[in-house]
């Protein structure tokens, strides 16, 4: 399988603390991976380094074999990004907004991709609405449609279903799974909803204090940390007394980093 994302030895230090401390991530084509961890674990910083919005102090990112540091624009062609916390430009209608981003991705006439995206997430009726008229759930859905207009090889989502009601969150998950299946798009997602992660992702990376402390299938990780589910693992890692070097309580440590 092709590697769509290869991040090696990522380090990012801000004034007061090391946010990311030697993170390695590899995502294969079509793979659905969750990046989990408590607040301040370094998830968003890691994603922003992968996207090229923050440059790492150390380490390299390659998207589909294109080095991010040397050719950000070319690398970005293969990636789509959406975040639950980002609003839409208020004065633009959804169709106009999507048209702009489609053309920024180099598609002269993105109308077909826009229609397909809106239909996939069942929001065709929002096409003529302005950004200011949308609920937060609708904004998230439009943001995801924007992120996939150019059929990216890698879709990066930061908290895509935060503050969404179960119905809309379900629609988001359904649309994403369908998209990944149809286009072979790889997914890298952060979320605080462990149930969602178990439904959406086949592989989980746990970050704690800027380091990856576990990498594997959701059930494997829960088992290896001696917890019932991912939520138990999450609470264990969020424990302020937890140190990344602490061994898991399970006997199995082969996939625990």
């Amino acid at each position: 399988m092709d590697t769509v994302l290869s991040a090696r030895g990522l380090v990012k230090e801000f004034k007061r603390a090391i946010a990311v401390d030697g993170v390695d991530i590899e995502v294969k084509a079509g793979e659905r991976v969750a990046l989990l961890g408590p607040n301040g674990a370094g998830k968003t910083t890691t994603l922003l380094m992968i996207l090229g919005a923050i440059s790492p102090d150390k380490g390299e990112v390659e998207i589909c074999g294109v080095p991010q540091r040397r050719n950000r624009s070319h690398a970005a062609e293969h990636v789509g990004f959406a975040a639950g916390y980002l609003p839409l430009a208020g004065e633009m209608k959804v169709r106009e907004y999507l048209m702009m981003f489609g053309q920024i991705y180099g598609i002269p006439d993105p109308s077909k991709a826009i229609a397909e995206g809106l239909e996939r997430f069942r929001i065709q009726h929002l096409s003529e609405a302005k950004g200011t008229q949308l609920s937060s759930g609708q904004r998230t859905l439009v943001g995801i449609v924007r992120a996939v207009l150019h059929k990216p090889r890698l879709l990066v989502l930061d908290e895509p279903t935060a503050s969404l009601d179960p119905d809309v969150a379900g629609r988001v998950r359904g649309g994403i799974l369908e998209l990944c299946a149809d286009n072979g798009t790889a997914l890298l997602v952060t979320s605080h909803d462990m149930l969602e992660v178990e439904r959406l992702c086949e592989r989980v990376l746990f970050l704690s204090a800027g380091r990856i402390v576990a990498d594997g299938a959701p059930t494997e990780i829960a088992e290896r940390f001696g917890r019932e589910d991912l939520e138990g693992v999450f609470l264990h890692l969020a424990d302020e007394n937890y140190q990344p070097s602490d061994p898991p309580t399970s006997q199995h440590t082969d996939h625990i980093l």
Partner: peptide, 27 residues
């Protein structure tokens, strides 16, 4: 095919510039 991305070059840069320009016209 206008529904697929253009190759790198002046045409694609011009398309992006027009997209940004149109966005500010709406504003």
């Amino acid at each position: 095919d206008p529904t697929t991305p253009l190759r790198p070059g002046a045409k694609r840069s011009w398309l992006r510039m027009r997209a940004v320009s149109r966005r500010h016209a709406y504003v």
